[in-house]
């Protein structure tokens, strides 16, 4: 397996800034709007997502390439991936509960929500079916996509905490103003879309 540092850095930058999971790809919006009311819970959710995303990209890659592809049943990937993720989340929850009660306390309530977070299934499908990454690239993409998600979530939570004090027209209170905020953030992130550090190195 050849490891190309340039391509790994490129995948990271793309996952965090250019194709940010929330603001450019529209993945994981439910937790993005559901858990972004308080900064502390946003950080907890973000950490849980980074963790599960990394583990899920690892396992889904192994299962896709060593079980589904050789047997020529790749069309089953939706069912297989969602089961892998659901059991993985369950497993992570049990392991944390046993070995790290403090971390479990912090992440515990967010873990069940993660099973139905489309960002996790999204990263598994992107890694294997859509982009055809190799193992290392998949893991890097998993970690950095999680970081991108956390970045957006934490920024959003910071803004929403301030918004509590603002005077907002009544029909826009609650979700609509959160959508407008997200829209403005997405415009800012559009600015990254021309970013390419490695044009001349031939990345």
């Amino acid at each position: 397996m050849n490891i190309n540092i340039v391509s790994l850095v490129q995948i990271s930058i793309a996952a965090i800034l250019i194709n940010n999971f929330v603001l450019a790809r529209f993945l994981g919006l439910c937790p993005f709007f559901g858990v972004s009311k308080k900064l502390s819970s946003a950080i907890g959710m973000g950490m849980a997502v980074i963790f599960v995303m990394t583990v899920a990209s690892m396992f889904s890659w192994i299962i896709y390439n060593y079980i589904l592809v050789p047997r020529d049943v790749t069309y089953l990937y939706t069912i297989v991936f969602i089961l892998v993720i659901a059991s993985l989340v369950q497993l992570v929850e049990m392991i944390l509960q046993k070995f790290s009660p403090a971390l479990y306390e912090a992440l515990g309530i967010f873990l069940p929500l993660i099973t139905t977070n489309c960002a996790i299934l999204g990263v598994a499908v992107l890694n294997t079916v859509t982009e055809n990454y190799n193992f290392i690239e998949s893991i890097v993409n998993g970690i950095t996509s999680g970081i991108g998600f956390t970045l957006a979530l934490v920024l959003m939570a910071g803004i929403r905490e301030k918004l509590e004090l603002a005077k907002i027209p009544k029909p826009l209170e609650g979700l609509p103003i959160a959508f407008i905020t997200a829209g403005l953030m997405a415009i800012a992130f559009l600015g990254f879309s021309g970013l390419n550090f490695f044009q001349n190195i031939g990345g």
Binding site: L172, F179, A186, I187, L190
Partner: peptide
Amino acid sequence: TLFILAPGGFLTIAFVMGIVNYFRQ
């Protein structure tokens, strides 16, 4: 073009939701 890019999605649903809320209230 903004409206078929990502930000347009957020802004569109924000205002549609706002209009719905207005009539509900």
